[in-house]
Amino acid sequence: MATTARKSVLVVTRHAHQGSALGRSALDAALVSATFELPVTLLFQGQGVLQLLPEQDCTEAGIRNLRKVIESLPLYDITPIYVDAAAAARYALQAELLPPQAQLISLDRQRQLLADHDHILGF
């Protein structure tokens, strides 16, 4: 893997935390891509923005706290994280509720991200 240029990866996460393992898998795929030094961009789209809700308390539910995982992403150089602005507005996720490294982006900018990477993982 050392000899060729790194392929860039866009991970698009579109499912809410509850009722689907896809959100967790998207974050894992992004983290492992970063560990292997592939340039990785993470985009929360549609219902996927609900993974960003603060104050997730998963102790009673016995599941992973995605917001905690998301807050650890800068440690792996996955920053900023991009957030579908229209979806955030739809679910009343004001900017101050989002993790500090979140950037709200328009549909046009999202389309641009889709075109700008070698591979897309759509979760």
Binding site: M1, T4, R6, K7, V9, D28, A29, V32, S33, T35, F36, L38, D118, H119, I120, L121, G122
Partner: peptide
């Protein structure tokens, strides 16, 4: 998952 990442690095196309 490293094997998925390695596949992305070494493949021209990744289809989901």
């Amino acid at each position: 998952l490293g094997l998925l990442v390695e596949a992305m690095q070494t493949s021209d196309r990744l289809i989901t």
